[in-house]
Structures are given as C-alpha cells and as structure tokens.
Design a protein around this nucleic acid. Structure first.
Length: 258
DNA sequence: ATGGCTTAGGTGCTAAGA
C-alpha cells in the first residue's frame, strides 16, 4: 500500500500535474493540501475518470484539503473535533483498514505573530485528537504539510534556520510530541539522502530550487505496525523542476500490507 | 537572498505563503 501527500498550491492550477503524476504513480491514497477550492468547484469528475474516489473540504483562496483514494474512504472526518476553526485543514478517512489523516498545518508566519499562537493551539488540538484516534486504530498514517522542519539537517542551512519559524523550539516540540504519542517519522527509516532528495519544499523566490535552498516540511508519520512493513519513503523531487510547479513535491510512503 | 515568486480575487492592487 502506498500513501502519499502533496501540497499542490491550488488544485485548479495543478490538476493536470496531479493526474499525470497519479497515472505514473498509482498510489492507494493521496492527501492534498492547499487545494484553494470551494467544494462545489472540486474536480470530482476528472478524478473519477482517472479511476479514483475523493473526499474533500475546501474554501476560497486559502487552505483546503482532500483525500484521493483507489477505494472509497470510510468514517470520513473533515475537521479537528473540539477546535473552532474557519480554516479547512484536516481530512481523514479509513482506506482498506488503514486510518489515513491528511493535514495542512498552519504556517505561523512569525514567532511574534498571532498566527504563531494559532499554530501552537492547532497542534495541541491535533495532538489530542490523534491520541484518541490511536486508541482505536492500530494502523494509522498522519501525513501532510506540517510546516515544521524537525531537525537542522531538514533545512539547507541549519544555522540560519535555527530558532526561526518552522524550526523554533515550540514547533519542534509539537512535532516530537506527536512522535511520543506513538508515531514514527517514516523518512528517518531511510535517512541517508543527499542534495535535493533531503527536502520536500523549495521557495519560489530567490532561486530556491536552482540553489537547492529547500526544507523538509512534508511528512508521513505512522504507527509501529506500519513502520514494521515500511519499505520506502521518498520525495518526488522531479516535480519541482517541471513547468509551473507547486513549491512542494509529492512524498510517498510504501507499506507492505495486503 | 526577510523575499527579487506564485497564487486568488478582481481588474490595481493586497494578502498569504514558508
């Protein structure tokens, strides 16, 4: 079973990229972030034509998440429970017995911004919900754009990024707390990577891609029973070099079940 | 190299991203 995540930065702009990528890489589940589409505009027909089911929750201009799956998702959730939020950032469903939760975590903007406080509160609510989900789901994958680079080596310049947004101690603590709850960062099972393959995002500005100024902020976290059968975890960095790319690339985990 | 892109909304610019 393959489970993927991709922040597409507008599904309207990136639909052709997504369909072409799925044709080459027919994963069982693909979590999308930043679809930036209201639900009435979601391209259900095109996705069904490609042979996939989908569930989604979106809004105008910002945020928006979806799950594109080979078999239909069950027990679908479209928000964090017990957390008031206008932002559409969460979509979860059970696919062939695996609980798959796709998230678009807040960016935070700056450490002194109200958005940073929102980010930390949002992660608290995510933590509480995941802990609850783990009580009833032995096979669970939490994947998406976390907007956190967990370690210095997950940035192109650890000294420069140390303490900054995406790398600050409270953000990294929030990430570690998810791991402590019983999830593994599957990337680290195959941690010997170099160059572009260390990252999942490159800034559009300042020649980010050209000078490989990237970050690893898109993650696949999984419970131990899935970690045991995880045979690969990789970023499809070639997508960043395409014409009109998203600034994030797809990240795919392979789990040898069923 | 704290933004020199890219997106949406709307039609000239602002907001947001990470």
């Amino acid at each position: 079973m393959q489970i993927a995540t991709w922040n597409v930065n507008s599904l309207n702009v990136r639909l052709d990229h997504v369909l072409a990528w799925l044709e080459k890489n027919p994963v069982d589940a693909l979590a999308l972030q930043e679809t930036k589409l209201t639900d009435d505009k979601f391209p259900v027909a095109a996705i069904r034509e490609a042979g996939y089911e989908c569930v989604f929750t979106g809004q105008k201009t910002y945020n928006g998440v979806a799950l594109i799956t080979k078999s239909a998702a069950e027990d679908v959730v479209t928000a964090l429970p017990d957390f008031e939020d206008d932002h559409k950032r969460v979509i979860g469903g059970t696919i062939d017995g695996v609980r798959v939760i796709g998230v678009y975590c807040p960016n935070g903007q700056d450490l002194d911004s109200p958005k940073f406080q929102y980010k930390l509160a949002w992660f608290d609510a995510l933590q509480a919900w995941i802990e609850k989900e783990l009580q009833t789901h032995d096979k669970l994958v939490l994947t998406g754009d976390f907007n956190i680079a967990p370690r210095g080596e997950d940035t192109y310049d650890p000294d420069k990024w140390e303490g900054r947004i995406l790398c600050s101690p409270p953000e990294r603590a929030a990430f570690t707390k998810l791991l402590d709850a019983g999830l593994a960062d599957c990337w680290r099972l195959f941690d010997e990577r170099e160059g572009r393959h260390r990252f999942t995002w490159w800034d559009y500005r300042n020649g980010g891609w050209a000078r490989n100024a990237g970050l690893r902020i898109d993650h696949v976290l999984a419970t131990p029973s899935l970690v045991d059968v995880c045979s690969d975890l990789k970023a499809f960095v070639g997508e960043r070099g395409r014409k009109r790319p998203s600034d994030h690339v797809p990240v795919v985990g392979t789990f040898n079940i069923g």
